[in-house]
Design a protein around this nucleic acid. Structure first.
Length: 859
RNA sequence: GCCGGGAUGGCGGAAUCGGUAGACGCAGCGGACUCAAAAUCCGCCGGUGGAAACACUGUGAGAGUUCGAGUCUCUCUCCCGGCACCA
């Protein structure tokens, strides 16, 4: 056996051996329990980043662990290959996005192979290829037929200079990122998917999922089911009704105004002959469309001069236009109840509208001076005519019925969740398979004309969608009437691609969207990915799965049985700020770091000798220049070190802070492991310990060994916490190397211990473990090994140590026989020297004995 | 603004169901080996007082529940993720 640990040599050798026998290829096998372990597919941005390494190291460790426990494990990989960055790169390089994307895929695939993940590459899916996205189009058409897809207008960010729609990401401080022009809101037609009709099921089935509770809660809140009422306010001229939705219809008698969105028909009507209103509506158009922006902007309004009639009191209420009312939510109008809604309260104060309390709260006095949080709590109705004295909940139920009887509304459930707008005015995406005909309207592309192929040779220029300028793409004949027509040039949201890729892995060559192989592998037993996907991606994929189920394409309800949301990978941020250039970032490896006496970073110096500010830890990103290239780590230390570091640095669901020294430490541990095995093997391999008398020292070591097997298995399988599993193995090896016994039995125990360690560490560092195993057991391979069994005899302990507390403070310890009774323990504790010293003559009130843990004497 | 999460030594983190706070690793300090360095090995390592035994104190801040709180409850501060066209 070679004395030096040479990852560059062993990793290549081990990987070619895997490749030669297609070790990670899997097929459907009814004789074994299946385990579908999926990591979120990467966007091919150019290089892998540490977040990918982390994500796939976790997935690989779980996959390998489950395989050792007798499961038929599928771990596939693919590429989320459509999207905005490819278009940006295309503009920059003046090359089509396709080339950039395929080059990146080739490079990143090489990186994934070098990291040694047990991926079945025969199932690779690339979402920008027609054999994948044709099924996006095919399902879209099925949804159109079922009425799940429909068309309506939507508000988007509009850059008036480039005449183009901007992504939220492209709006910086209310301005277009390339032009600097103030962004406007603009309405355009879009295709929508009716995710809201699945809202109830999407909430209800969260319950059966093995997901982190916070993620389930976030989804539930996102869907945001609210039980309330629709209320109709007839127009003063009797020409129609203004519909509003309220979750607090019990406050109806407190309504002193109604507010409509600037895009609402009433607002438009009022502005017709009113230039001030027109100016206000124009002003409301300024700025972007994100909820964060709308929620933090100043609440502004303007009176329209129009009135509507209160449905119960017949009072005339003024109609205002308000910038905080969203046209896309509910009816685009709200009733203003200043006394019990914080936003309405401040609005009423600002515009001098009446504030009438209609809910009383026991023991509290209402004052219209300042807002108090309890104003919006439930209570008992007052100032509400026949309903006075009714508790909120009862009133809420009753009022819906009353309104329905008057034909002025009724009970209604709404959701915060909005239908999924999938149209994008972009080139690099799945073409939407629709044709617009002057006589026939929106006509679906017939199935036999699928896929609508995206031309791969266009280069976008930043002003609008190149597809809309490509005559050969959009010019077509109407499939219905045969007259000249125009093909839809919008493409689909890339969330469509990631909503079902995991099903395509099951049968990547199928001539249909999915086949019976999906029934074998799905649903996914373990899904792993970034916490940033906790809502949108996961929700869309769940919705898409339910649609496929309703179309009888699959038989399961939910795609992801268990979910692990991994934290981000962070690194130091260094920057300079200047008036002229704004913020300039510096890569951490290029600055001289300053530390205070405690080792804390205080700042840095650049290569020019000028000071640089320290910005703490932040996510690794291209813009902040603080990314660490995994390739550099692999080249210098090997894949096993890179994997060990990311797994050891913190638990999977927390963020990892990058540390060069930590990588060094991971490498040192592997080198040490190599040396320990080398020294053992050099003295000759022996048969592993199977039984017989052992010294107390060896018994203790075996006890620790078997406790470690148990713990590591539990950490991998149940807790999915790898850092503590690695720590436990480190501890075991620390104690092992303290052993100086060279007897026959000690060598047998050493053999058992080292064989076991190579097996239980192999899910995390498979290359070194595969190599070490071959040295420890020549002629056999690690690949054939099962997860080691815990020897229950080794777990038996004759004595245990208890802690003694007096009044909850640690005062000593006690070694007692494992079989000692509660009374024995208490007696021993009472007579303990430290206890006598601390208790003295004070009478003992109580003795708490926690078996196997501690004794607490309370005085 | 709203929803969710987090805060523990110089640093990353451990403490799994309310029961010994700081496992394991990094950095640092001391020593061995070496002509020397690197590597490796051994030891120390929250703070204060103490020669030591030991005592007190300590898990973002403030209160509370409990024999016992890093862990549970309430209030607050700061940081991170998401907010529907980044993926």
């Amino acid at each position: 056996m070679q004395e030096q640990y040479r990852p560059d040599q062993i990793e290549k050798a081990v990987q070619s051996e895997w490749e030669a026998r297609a070790a990670h290829r899997v097929t459907e096998d009814a004789s074994k329990p299946k385990y579908y372990c999926l990591s979120m597919l990467p966007y091919p941005s150019g290089k892998l980043h540490m977040g990918h390494v982390r994500n796939y190291s976790i997935g690989d460790a779980l996959s390998r662990y489950l395989a050792m426990n007798g499961h038929n494990v599928l771990q596939p990989m693919g590429w989320d290959a459509f999207g905005l960055p490819a278009e940006n790169a295309a503009m920059k390089n003046n090359l089509p996005p396709a080339k950039w994307t395929y080059d990146n895929i080739a490079h990143m695939k090489g990186q994934l192979k070098a990291l040694g993940f047990a991926l079945d590459w025969s199932r690779e899916v690339t979402t920008c290829k027609p054999d994948y996205y044709r099924w996006n189009q095919w399902l879209f058409l099925r949804m159109w037929e079922k009425g799940i897809v429909y068309r309506k207008s939507a508000v988007v960010n509009w850059d008036p200079v480039d005449q183009t729609v901007l992504a939220n990401e492209q709006v910086i401080d209310g301005r277009g990122w390339r032009t600097g022009a103030t962004v406007e809101k603009r309405e355009i037609p879009m295709y929508y998917m009716k995710i809201t009709s699945y809202a109830d099921e999407l909430i209800a089935q969260l319950e059966k999922l093995g997901w982190p509770e916070p993620v389930k809660l976030m989804q539930k809140n996102w869907i945001g089911k609210s039980d309330g009422a629709e209320i109709h306010f007839p127009y003063e001229d009797g020409s129609g009704v203004l519909k509003v939705f309220s979750t607090r219809p019990d406050t109806i008698y407190g309504a002193s105004f109604v507010a409509v969105a600037p895009e609402h028909v009433l607002a438009q009507k009022a502005a017709q002959n009113n230039s001030a209103l027109q100016a206000f509506i124009e002003e409301c158009k300024k700025g972007g469309v994100t909820e964060a922006e709308l929620a933090t902007q100043e609440k502004k309004g303007m009176d329209t001069g129009l009135f509507v009639t209160h449905p119960l009191t017949q009072q005339q209420l003024p109609v205002l236009i308000a910038n905080y009312v969203l046209i896309g939510y509910g009816e685009g109008a709200v009733m203003g109840v200043p006394a019990h809604d914080e936003r309405d309260f401040h609005f009423a104060k600002k515009y001098n509208l009446p504030i009438l309390p209609v809910v009383a709260h026991a023991g509290k006095t209402y004052s219209t001076d300042t807002w108090q949080d309890w104003y919006s709590d439930e209570g008992v109705a007052i100032n509400s005519h026949d309903f006075d004295g009714k508790p909120t909940a009862e009133f809420k139920k009753k009022i819906g019925v009353v309104l329905a009887a008057l034909n002025l509304g009724g009970p209604r459930i709404t959701y915060r969740l909005r239908d999924w707008g999938i149209s994008r005015q972009r080139y690099w995406g799945t073409p939407i398979p629709m044709i617009h005909c002057e006589s026939c309207g929106d006509v679906p592309v017939p199935d036999d004309q699928l896929p609508v192929v995206l031309p791969e040779n266009l280069v976008p220029d930043g002003s609008g969608n190149p597809l809309a300028k490509t005559v050969s793409f959009f010019q077509c004949d109407c499939p219905k009437c045969g007259k000249p027509a125009r093909r839809e040039t919008d493409t689909m949201d890339t969330f469509v691609d990631s909503s079902w890729y995991f099903m395509r892995y099951c049968s990547p060559d199928a001539k249909t969207m999915v086949d019976e192989r999906a029934e074998y592998w799905m649903p996914i037993d373990q899904y792993i990915g970034g916490i940033e996907h906790a809502i949108l991606h996961l929700l869309y994929a769940r919705f898409w799965t339910k649609v496929m189920r309703d179309l009888k394409l699959v038989s399961f309800d939910e795609p992801f049985t268990n979910l692990l949301t991994q934290g981000m990978v962070l690194n130091h941020i260094f920057f300079r700020k200047s008036e002229k250039a704004g913020i300039t970032y510096f890569p951490p490896e290029e600055v001289q770091i300053h530390r205070d006496d405690n080792g804390r970073i205080t700042g840095a110096t650049g290569s020019d000798g000028q000071p640089i500010e320290y910005g703490g830890f932040g996510t690794m990103s291209k813009s902040k220049l603080n990314g660490v290239d995994p390739q550099a780590i692999v080249d210098q230390y090997g894949a096993d070190t890179a994997r060990l570091f990311v797994m050891f640095a913190s638990p999977p669901d927390q963020s990892v802070e990058w540390s060069d020294a930590g990588v060094e430490g991971a490498f040192r541990f592997l080198r040490r492991l190599w040396k320990i095995v080398h020294d053992h093997v050099s003295a000759g391999v022996v048969a592993r310990y199977t039984g017989g008398e052992l010294s107390a020292e060896l018994k203790t070591l075996r006890n620790q060994l078997h406790r470690t097997i148990d713990k590591v298995g539990d950490d991998y399988g149940r807790r999915k916490q790898f850092n503590t599993a690695i720590a436990a193995v480190m501890e075991l090896l620390n104690n092992f190397t303290k052993l100086s016994d060279t007897s026959q039995s000690a060598r047998a125990v050493a053999q058992e211990l080292l064989e076991t360690v190579t097996v239980i560490l192999s899910p995390i560092v498979p290359h070194i473990c595969t190599t070490l195993w071959s040295e420890l057991r020549p002629g056999t391979t690690l690949a054939d090994q099962q997860w080691p069994k815990v020897d229950s005899a080794a777990l038996q302990q004759d004595e245990i140590e208890l802690v003694i507390q007096v009044n909850g403070k640690l005062r000593g310890s006690l070694t007692v026989p494992a079989k000692a009774t509660r009374e024995d323990v208490e007696e021993l504790a009472r007579n303990n020297e430290a206890v006598i010293r601390h208790v003295g003559d004070t009478p003992i009130k109580k003795v708490v004995v926690v078996p196997g843990r501690l004794v607490n004497i309370v005085v």
